[in-house]
Design a protein around this nucleic acid. Structure first.
Lengths: 232, 232
DNA sequence: CCTCATTTGTACGTATGTATC
DNA sequence: TGATACATACGTACAAATGAG
């Protein structure tokens, strides 16, 4: 692995685990050079990645400071308008366990030919905050080199964490479409809302570091009590 | 202005105006060095910015290629579910020209003290696609070193382009909240929808490279015919 | 107000590694 | 195999902003 990448991963880990807490200053670039025994440019490249991740802020003449809120991937976090991030009362209910299907369609996104041929891993989840349904979530992925995924425990670990740790698949970007709709019968049942209640719909096609491997997801969210929030 | 930034702006402009069309290859880094008379690193820094903007794709050993859809800033682009990006029928109507106000509130985001003190530049815009109102947009910014902004032509150029070119202000990140709501009276009038029609609401606080300079915006969008789309 | 050390930002030149064709 | 092009890395130098004295 490239040196700048090792430094980046190390610093990122320390920010994630709280060694460097929000508001803390990172070591100066020069001291990082000494510690890791590399040139200035190498440290700067690592710092630059953290900056473009939105994990730190840099100002000329001042030390770089750890930011409060890490950048999400498009939309990931759910937050109560009055409560804290990573709400302890957030739980996941698997409505439909991961299973193999043939592709029908992917929420208006065109499915690529080799994905179509590989078959579709399909599952549905319901997220609850303090027992209240907050959003309902349908995911589809091509069944390409994902042995043992069908037995994967999605209740206690996020999909993206699982894919990264089990298969080294990481998200690189994607496209998302937002709609405000009226709840139909299915959504009314899942999210416990009245007919015609406004619901936020989010369709996403997510790119990964594997060429030709995309994650397609559709999400329905009641925003009455809790808003959908994201950083970028 | 920094050399790498000039090169970045030039290349970006050429991508925007179609000189380099999607799928086209950029000139090689070495040839860019010769053309602009700068070192390799300087060109790479400019290229790196385009890459992190999502405007190009780079592969080792191959020339860099212009991407079809640029990465938006959180959510930026509007697209018809069946039509193309940069729809020719998209027009902007200034409902309320940029004017100086005192801050009231910023869509539930707390306004920082020095922003409060500087006063607020406020304006409202309505975007239409083929004459149909698609979204309605309220923007607030602190009045800090923005001479001549009040005369700025926002109908023909995006706010972010204007800020970048006139004041070297670039967006570095931000926070956004999504809601599905029922249209109230004001929104019904602006967007020409019936009472209770579902509407997408998006509140954003946008960070910039200027410390303590944030853009606060609120957006209402009818997603019946056109969805709000973004890349990340 | 000025000076000075610190720290980040920009830029150069060079070298080598590695993927693509 | 060789040419081309991007990726990583080193060392150096100076500019510009900050904050302390």
């Amino acid at each position: 692995m490239a040196k700048y990448r090792q430094i980046y991963e190390t610093l990122r880990r320390r920010i994630a685990d709280g060694t460097y807490a929000p508001g803390d200053m990172l070591p100066s670039e020069n001291s990082l050079c000494s510690v890791y025994g590399v040139a200035h440019l190498t440290v700067r490249k690592a710092i630059g990645q953290l900056l473009s991740d939105g994990l730190i802020v840099c100002r000329q003449g001042k030390r770089s400071v750890v930011k409060g809120t890490p950048k999400g991937i498009g939309i990931l976090s759910i937050i109560g308008t009055t409560s804290a991030l990573n709400h302890p009362g957030l739980s996941t209910q698997i409505i439909c366990k991961p299973e193999l299907r043939t592709w029908s369609e992917a929420f208006s996104f065109p499915v690529e030919a080799h994905e179509q041929a590989a078959g579709c891993i399909y599952f549905e989840r319901l997220r609850l905050l303090d027992g209240i349904p907050v959003f309902f979530d349908i995911t589809m992925m091509p069944n390409i080199n994902l042995s043992r995924f069908l037995n994967c425990d999605l209740e206690n670990r996020s999909l993206f964490d699982s894919l990264r740790m089990m298969y080294q698949i990481v998200v690189t970007g994607g496209t998302q479409q937002f709609f405000a709709i009226r709840a139909d019968k299915r959504i009314q049942d899942c999210l416990k809302v009245h007919a015609g209640h406004p619901v936020l719909q989010l369709n996403r096609k997510i790119d990964t570091n594997r060429t030709g491997f995309h994650i397609y997801s559709q999400l329905f969210c009641v925003t009455q009590k809790y808003g959908l929030i994201g950083t970028f």
